[in-house]
Write a protein that binds this DNA or RNA. Structure first.
Lengths: 410, 410
DNA sequence: TTAATATGTTGCATAAAAATACAAATGTCC
DNA sequence: GGACATTTGTATTTTTATGCAACATATTAA
């Protein structure tokens, strides 16, 4: 309700904000001494010491035992600093992806390392929301011993749905859901009182692929997930840009009417289904796989190359259109179809140059080669990001429950 | 260089941040009492009093003399607060637009009221950058008495150019500029030491049209300027979203290839030149104006209506494409061609519904009816916005010049 | 061994907000 | 009209986090 940019900073908030800044710096840069931290945060060495003492007392930071033996050659004069690091297993976060054909879960630690993953086949459309949530939560918790559970600090859910920022699903056509409060359902089922966030799967994937990467920390990254469907997400200065309805970056629904015939959207031109549909018409195999298609493209089989060429042209058109609007720094391609890009990079570039005016800059394109748990990982990262912010549960005022009604009253 | 999100808050910074928050609240909500301000900023009444005392001493805030006599019926119990307001003429900001055919200048006060404007014909392409800057600066200063000059706190320039956030123009095809540091040139000519910002004209227009409007304070607004050319800008949560190269929102270069024939971009389909080119073919008048065209559309003259219908369809297509990517809350149309929209609103809506899937929400469309100085006004607003932020010159540390080398040293 | 340099820690000063208390100004209720 | 509740603004004290200065410590350079 209240504009966060307007809210003032009290004494407690200063310390909170500085603790958060310290945790973020340790996450982003790895090991730092107290003095290095003080310089990065532009505060006094002694203040840095106080903040570290407080974080150490909370068990989130420790002095690194393993002293890396003076790696590079040039020796620095003066007393060497004591390196500090996050305590990775101080706390952990869980992320689940409720997909159409599978449920994946990921556990990450305070260093955003993947601790464990689970994947289970699943028939989304035939199962109710409540049952899906049950399955997802129990799969995520199955390998966590009860004693560890209290160290969980957040639970994220990703799913192919259009939802608001509170986790209220407006519509999930692939799963047959409509107007269900997904985050609320998860909170009810979860035997923990931790923050729960829900996000669209492509958006979550985009967060996971960029989170903690210093190059994505500033600038605009457009992320594309190409599977049967084509989703997308936009990361601005390291934060997800959702748009008004969480649909920002949903580039799959761009209309590309270059080809003759009926109006088609980008998803229908570059999605896995279209490629495989075309490929099946020409392949000699009875049950050709996408791997077979890639091999044929690599072998320059004309029929496969022709399909790939169409794909490259449609992709180029879509990316140019998107960049005319958001002017991205970087484009990252993900999903299984992204494996086709390295084979066609030159053709995509040629089409881009043919389409757009030469005076316009164009971002670099890279391929994300994360495993199949990218979206669940991203959902977990969202809670890591929240923990390393002023909204962290660590700062939940114990008097907050009494203050809340006062605020409503005023 | 250093991530602002990582920098810590010292004592001076807290007070600065709270003063800024207070100024912004007074700008956004108008008159407030100390107690109301304390609630909005979530700080103690006494702290609010201290901050106001400090701002009053600086001459930026005063107690409102005119007590509006209990406007609405319901009387509130308790001692009434003393209303506070910004002192409008405490300081002022200047904005200039260097256009292709004219130069406009605007003076705004601390309340973002327009104090005065100047417009002068100008032949952009035939004049050098340096001469253009000279003309713009002297036009802006001509009506400011010397005694008032020291109260100027910022100077903004807008121009049809692709430029980075520091005001370095990469390319301005309409003016024939390339790789000139516009902001630097203005700083050199200006007989004042005030912050100078330069921005693309469409971006500046977008800021001016949304700045201070509470509805644009959160959410995503897509702004379109339709003149001979078609430019655009995107405002996210009240801040301009520039993209990687300041080209975000430049929707005029979207490719709309729905129509048969050569590939055309949106600018070529909905710009003033196209409309008038078509209209001249059918009009009985020897020198028809855009006003004649509007009148003919209103009178349902078939030839004019047909042109307008093509325009509506192209506009709808462009807006749908843009919203598939940025998922806007609001669309605002500006520029002289925007006057056509109210006559065609129903047709545009019909085309939008025909093009996009029904499950997608679509933002509201409104027309901006600011005068011709919108872009210069926006440029001035940029400096108002900067003044009401932590980058304000008010907080320029007098020791900063000595601290800077230390920072570089460390 | 001495000097130079950088780190971590300690005690004290300072700034700014919170908490508290109280006078002032208004409406309500009798 | 008067007692009372309610809200505002301000003066005083308390709390808290940072800045500053001093010092012991650990290392390299000479």
């Amino acid at each position: 309700m209240n504009d966060p940019a307007l809210t003032a900073s009290s004494h407690r908030r200063i310390r909170q904000s500085n603790e958060v800044a310290a945790l973020r710096a340790l996450h982003q840069f790895g090991r730092l001494s107290r003095a290095e931290l003080a310089r990065k945060l532009r505060l006094n060495r002694s203040s840095s010491g106080h903040i570290i003492a407080s974080l150490t007392a909370d068990g989130l930071v420790r002095e690194a035992i393993e002293d890396p033996p003076e790696q590079s050659g040039y020796a620095r004069v003066g007393r060497p600093g004591i390196m500090l690091e996050l305590v990775p297993d101080a706390i952990f976060f869980l992320g689940v992806e409720i997909g159409v054909e599978h449920i994946s879960t990921v556990e990450i630690d305070l260093g955003t390392n993947i601790v464990s993953t689970n994947v289970e086949p699943f028939d989304g459309p035939s199962i109710s929301v409540e049952a899906a949530v049950d399955r997802a939560v129990s799969l995520a918790l199955q390998s966590i011993p009860a004693s560890k559970l209290e160290r969980c600090e957040g639970f994220g859910v990703s799913t192919p749905a259009q939802m608001d920022k509170h986790g209220l699903v407006r519509l999930a056509p692939l799963l047959g859901w409509r107007n269900v409060h997904l985050a609320e359902l998860v909170r009810d089922v979860l035997p923990l009182r931790v923050p729960v966030l829900a996000e669209n799967d492509a958006n979550a994937f985009a967060i996971g692929a960029t989170y903690g990467r210093s190059e994505a920390h500033s600038g605009v990254t457009l992320f594309l997930v190409m599977e049967s469907g084509v989703g997308g997400g936009i990361i601005i200065d390291g934060n997800l840009f959702r748009g008004a309805n969480g649909l920002a970056g949903e580039i799959g629904h761009l209309i590309i009417s270059d080809a003759p015939g009926p109006r088609r959207n980008l998803e229908q031109l570059i999605g896995l289904e279209t490629i495989m549909g075309e490929y099946r018409k020409t392949s000699a195999l009875s049950h050709p796989s996408f791997g077979n298609f890639l091999a044929d493209v690599q072998d320059r089989l004309p029929s496969a190359v022709s399909i790939a060429e169409q794909w490259a042209k449609a992709l180029a058109t879509g990316l140019v259109q998107a960049c005319r609007i958001i002017d991205a720094d970087r484009i990252v391609l993900g999903g299984s179809v992204a494996a086709l890009y390295p084979l066609m990079a030159a053709r995509v570039a040629a089409h881009i140059h043919a389409i757009q005016e030469s005076s316009f800059p164009f971002p670099s394109i890279t391929v994300n080669d994360e495993g199949t748990v990218g979206s669940a990982f991203g959902a977990a990262c969202m809670l890591h990001q929240r923990y390393l912010s002023l909204e962290s549960q660590r700062f939940a005022d114990d008097t907050a429950e009494f203050e809340e009604p006062q605020a409503a009253e005023g």
